[in-house]
Each structure stands twice: as structure tokens, then as C-alpha cells.
Design a protein around this nucleic acid. Sequence first.
DNA 1: AATGAATGAGCCTTCATTCAT
DNA 2: GATGAATGAAGGCTCATTCAT
Lengths: 216, 216, 216, 216
Amino acid sequence: MHCGDETEDRTDVTKLDKIARLAEMAEAKSAKRARKKDELADHAITALKQLGYARTSLRDIAEMSGVAVGTLHYYFEDKVDLITYCVRRYKVGFVANIAEILDADVAPEQLTKSFIKGLSQSIEHDAETHRLWYDIRSQAMFDPAFEEVVTDIEDGLIGLVATYLERLGRPTDKAETVYLVLDACFRFHIQAFLKGQDTAPARFERKAVELLAPLL
Amino acid sequence: MHCGDETEDRTDVTKLDKIARLAEMAEAKSAKRARKKDELADHAITALKQLGYARTSLRDIAEMSGVAVGTLHYYFEDKVDLITYCVRRYKVGFVANIAEILDADVAPEQLTKSFIKGLSQSIEHDAETHRLWYDIRSQAMFDPAFEEVVTDIEDGLIGLVATYLERLGRPTDKAETVYLVLDACFRFHIQAFLKGQDTAPARFERKAVELLAPLL
Amino acid sequence: MHCGDETEDRTDVTKLDKIARLAEMAEAKSAKRARKKDELADHAITALKQLGYARTSLRDIAEMSGVAVGTLHYYFEDKVDLITYCVRRYKVGFVANIAEILDADVAPEQLTKSFIKGLSQSIEHDAETHRLWYDIRSQAMFDPAFEEVVTDIEDGLIGLVATYLERLGRPTDKAETVYLVLDACFRFHIQAFLKGQDTAPARFERKAVELLAPLL
Amino acid sequence: MHCGDETEDRTDVTKLDKIARLAEMAEAKSAKRARKKDELADHAITALKQLGYARTSLRDIAEMSGVAVGTLHYYFEDKVDLITYCVRRYKVGFVANIAEILDADVAPEQLTKSFIKGLSQSIEHDAETHRLWYDIRSQAMFDPAFEEVVTDIEDGLIGLVATYLERLGRPTDKAETVYLVLDACFRFHIQAFLKGQDTAPARFERKAVELLAPLL
DNA sequence: AATGAATGAGCCTTCATTCAT
DNA sequence: GATGAATGAAGGCTCATTCAT
């Protein structure tokens, strides 16, 4: 029937509209939830980088975030979920930062310099946050729950080095080796910086050059 | 009087004897205590290498050692004292082991091979214990209580590399750099081995050679 | 526009309403918490008056209160906080009770009688609770954590005596002296009563009259 | 038989001798043990007056005495026995001190002055030790194990006041009352002195005179 | 006579997690 | 969507006491 058809059509349209609107709302909701999660994570990082994984309680984080403890569990499965989310978020940002430096249009010899400078500045400004990464990486040796995030991040870091080698016109098959060397150097000087040695960033730069030279 | 003198002499001798015996007993007691401490530490390491610092309770360790919790506190100041004692004990043993290898009377080219082989075998046999060291080293970034033991051990490891370079007839001023590189490589492959990758020790050997070559 | 203004006004009203309601809820919540605290304290006093400060564990109190140990710590900072809250609460109630007696419209000679009677009855009915006060007062000689609550309560007791003297038409500058004497007498007979001497309350009354007479 | 008699006699003499010598030795031994107990008690008091009954462990006392914990249990039944021994020993000494003052051949008006002076000086010099007495007296309200020593000492103190009244030519039936008043005053000013009020001893003297006057 | 190793119950406190609202 | 009250297991640590030597 005409009437029926028309009605059905209209109904369909209405239904589709509703669904579309619902989907839209769901998306908006989900986006809002994601924003809130990130906001909570940022506060959590502030707490975590000061005390480390084992010593920071959800209460500490809740207090620092200005929300109730229950809220934390509303957004994150459990403590491990929260911590991995935080570490991932921080380290992804770090990788993006360095990637940006590697994206600059500079000569190869200049690239190494600015690359190392970027890492050195991160030692100076974010030593406390990086130690959180080393903490989690150690935990992962005992607790499989941390394995995934550590592997993902470490892959990202190796990828970063690959990008660096690419931009240098070098084969990327040594990315892992170069990462290993740079990471050792990075970690060692963060440790020194945290012990109060203010010259650690500068020493890192010299040592990194010394290590990189024979590898390239 | 003669008699008096003799008596005094005898008394003196007796006194000295007593003092000597007392000192002997005190020493024996102290030695026994040290032995017991080491025995407890060995049990503790067995527990710690399975769960790591934060996840292993003194109760766990006591149970594993077959003693009461109180006994642990009778021998160790607190948990930190116990853990640092364990890590130190294990790592000193490890350094001694490797040092023995470096002490062998072999040609330089052979030395590197046996050195790396020693490390590779330690990955295979003691991966779990080594991760305890990496755990504590990370904790030291947050907790100054671990700083001393970490510094001491790391100095020992650098010293080990210096010995290696010496035996090779190389200047030892690059010991720190070489240590950094080897440690990064070592840690990375322990991590891989613990993730179930059985080829990690072999891969470590190849990677170590690759890294060492340009540095020597 | 008229319309706009009106809408804004309405919005403002709504906002104010919300704020008001929120404030109300916060207040209600805080009141509820205070009520719960008092309820827990009352249970705690029941436990504490039986065993005293050092011998009563938080487990004992939790069990007696029918809550988990954690709940106690949710409402009170630590054991000292809980105990001082209890002692303060009890003693403030006691002071209020006696103050009520002193508020009665009776002749001066009658006042002393009813005052002493009130104290005597408190010996008979609350000897166990009062000993908790004497316990804490002694602890305060060693632990500064108890100093404040002891000073506060003792000031309140001296104030009580001052009220009594005032109602008697006497100068209040002897309040401290009279308090000292009455307290010594009170404590001594509570001690006797707790040793099983049932005549202690009656003896307290006679002794108190004997002590007060020359002071007034 | 002769022989037998003689032998028996000799035997008897020998036996008696032996018994006598044994008794002598036992006495000497017992005296030595008593001396050692007192020596240990004196060290214990030093520890106890600083921390109080509940906060002082046998380990603390052993360390301060320079003996092993086991030794403490060799001389004292248990902790309560040790503490009561200490308190009794100290307070008996205190009573003897004051009794000596009361024994002096001075005029009655002078006696009150020197009596109060003696108490005031004990506040100044031994406030810390006296608080141990107040601590135990409070504990006695909860723990019958302390009842006896507290009663004994309190009787001794009342007896001291009786001696004072006697020397003053007053009836001793008010000894308990006067003790109560003096004790209240004494305790209050010890408390004040321990809170850091240096004028407490002087204030005690004035207050004691004020309180004693109407009672005599 | 004196020791000190060993105990294990018990203490206070922390914390991730749950759930009714 | 967010809260925070409530939990209870678990943690590190203390301590009076026992006992073989």
C-alpha cells in the first residue's frame, strides 16, 4: 500500500535518524570518556613519577586528580590498567616529540646532533617520568600483565631509531642494536641525573656521540 | 717472693688464656651468625627471584627458609636490609664467576669468546635472579635506600669490564662505555628469554660481538 | 530583551538552587559522618574502659563495633586519634552532666551536696570509664600526642569547678586548687571502688566534704 | 661401738660444718643475686623513666643494662615482676629520703618548710622517675598484677605523711586526707614541669602551703 | 650463671576493590 | 556518571618468652 509504504519509509527514515543520532551520541560520549580518561591519566602520571608504581596508591592518584577513588575504577579496569594506560600515554607522547625532531628538514650531520639534543633535554626535563618507564619495564619481567605495554613501547622506540637511520640514509636493520646502545646510555644518565649530578645531560650527549660513531 | 711471682705469672697466663678463648668464641659466634645470614639470604633469593621485590613478603621468605618471621628480623634490620643483602650477595658471586673466566690463561681473541659465553650462560641459567637486580636498580631511582647497593654493584660490574679490557691489553678508560653497552644487551636478552624466547642466549652472543667489535 | 532577561534570571535561580542543594547534601553527608564517628567511638569506649589504652587493640575495638578494622581507619587517623576522640567525647559528656547539676536552682548549701552526690554517683556508675581518663593522663606524661587532649579536658574540669564556686558566690581564683583536691579524692576512691570496695562512693562523699570545708 | 660413735661424731661435725658452709654460701649467693637484681633494676629504671611501662621493651632494658635478654628473665619472673621491682625500689628510696628530712631535729614550723622543699626538689630532679609511678598506678586500675605494689607504696606514702603529722604533734588520723591533697598537688606540678614549665617546683611550694594551711 | 637464637602471636596500618546510592 | 563508605586480606614489624648450651 501507498500509505503503508510511505509510513514505512517515514518510519525507516525516523529509525535511521534515531540510530544515527544514537551513534553520534555514543561517539560523543565515548570521546568525552576518552578525554576524561586522559585527564585522569595526566594527573596520575604526576603522582606516579614521584613515587613509582608500587608506592603510589589509588588514593594518592584520586586525591591528586580531585576525584573519588571509585571514579578511578569507573574509568579503569584496575590498577594495572591505569598504570599501563599512563605509561603508554606518556611514552607515546615522548616518541611523537622526538619523531617531530627527526622530521625536521636538516642535513644528516645536523640530524644526529638535534636527535641527541632532544634526548638530552628529555633527561633534563622529564627524568622523573622516564624512571616510571624503567620501573614498569622491570615489573614486566615478573608480571605478564605489563608485558604487552612494554613490548609495544619498546617496538615504538626501536621504530623511532629506524626512522632516524632512514633519514640518515642508513639501513634500518641495525635499529635494534642502536636502540639498545642509546637506551643503555639514556638510562644510565637519567640515573645519574636523579642522583643529583647536574652534568648528566651534557655527559649523555658526549657519551652518545662516542657510542654512535662506530655504529654508523 | 718467688712463690708469689710464679703464682702471678700463672694467673696472668690463665687470664690471657681466658681472654683468648673468649675472643675465639666471640669470633666463632660471629662467623656462625654470618653463615646463618647467608643461608637465610640464599633461601630469600629463591623467593625473591620468583616474585620480585615488591611482591615478595617477609612471610613468603620466612616460609621458604623454614624459619619464623621474627627470625628474619633477628638477622636483618628490615626488608630493605634483607633485600640489599641478597642482591649484593648474588651479584658479588656473579662478578666472581665471570672474573674467574677472565683469569684463565687464554689468548685475547679467545678471551672475548669465553667472556661472552659466560654471560650468555648466565642468561640461560640465572635469568630469574638477574631480573631481581634490574628490579632493585629501578627501585633505586625512587628509593634512596637502594642507592648505595646499586652504586656499589654497578662499580663492581664496571670493574669487571675494566679487568677484561686490561687482559685484552686495551686502555681501561672505556670500561664504563663498554659496560653500558654490554648491560643493555644483557638486560634485553634476559627480558626476551623470560618471555619464552629460548634463542635469546645465542642471539645475545651474536649481538654482543656485533656491539663490541666497533668499540675495541 | 525582556524574554532573555527572564530566562537568565531563571537560570540564575536554578544555579543557585543547585549550589544550595549541593551545599545541603555536603552538610548532610558531613553530619552523617560525624554521627558514625560518634557511634564508633561509643563502641570503642566500651572496649577501652575494660582494658585500657595499651591493652586494647584496634581489632578488639573493631570487633566490638561490628565493623572491619579498615573502617576504623577510615574514620580515624590512627589509634591515638581514635583514643583521644573517645576520651574527649566521654569527658565532655561527663562535664555536661555535672554542669547540669550545677545549673539547678537550689540554695548554696544544697548545691555542694548535690555536686558531691553527682561525683559520687559517677564513681559508682562510671568508674571503669574514668580510669581510661587517668590512663591517658598518665600516658600524656610520656607521649606528647596526648598532651593537647589532656590539657583541654583538665581546663574543662577546672572550668566546672569555677562554675561551682561562682554559683556559691565565691571567688573563682581558687578553682584550680579546689579541682586538684577534688580530683585527687575522686581518683583515690575510684581506685578503691575498682579494687572491690563498695563503700568507696559513700566514703568519697564524706572525704570530699572534709576536704572542701576548709577551702571554702 | 666406740669406733662407730667416734666415727658418727666426726661425721656429725663434718655434716654440720658442711651444712653451715652450704647455708653460708647460699646466703652469700642469695645476697649476690640480690645485688645483681638491684643493679639490673637501676639500669632498667633509667630506661623506664624515659619511655614508660608500655613503651619500654625488655630489649631496651637489656641493652641499657649491658646484659642479654635472657639474663633479665633469669633474675625476674617476667616483665611485670621486673617493673614492679623497679617501681618499688625507686619509691622506697624516695620515701627513705623524705623520711630522713622528717627525722631532722628542727622546730615544727621549720619542718613543714623543709618537708615541702624536699618534695619540690624531687619534682625538679626526679620528675621523670615519678611519672613512672603514676604510670604504674594507672595500669593498676586495669591490671591486678600491679595492685599489690601500688597499695604497698601508697601505704608507705600515707605512712610518711603520718610521720610528718606526728612530728608536728598532730593526730595522724588525717594522714590519708593530707596525703591525697599533697599527691594531687605533686602530680599536677610534675605534669607541668614535664611540659616544660620551669617554675613548676616553686609554684608547687606555694600551692602546697596554701593547701596544707587549712588542714592543720 | 648467663646467653642469645628462635619463636609466633599480635600490633598498627595500607590498599585495591566492591557496591549501594 | 560519579561517589565514598566499607571491606578484609595482607604487609612490615615488635616483643615477651622459651630453651639449648
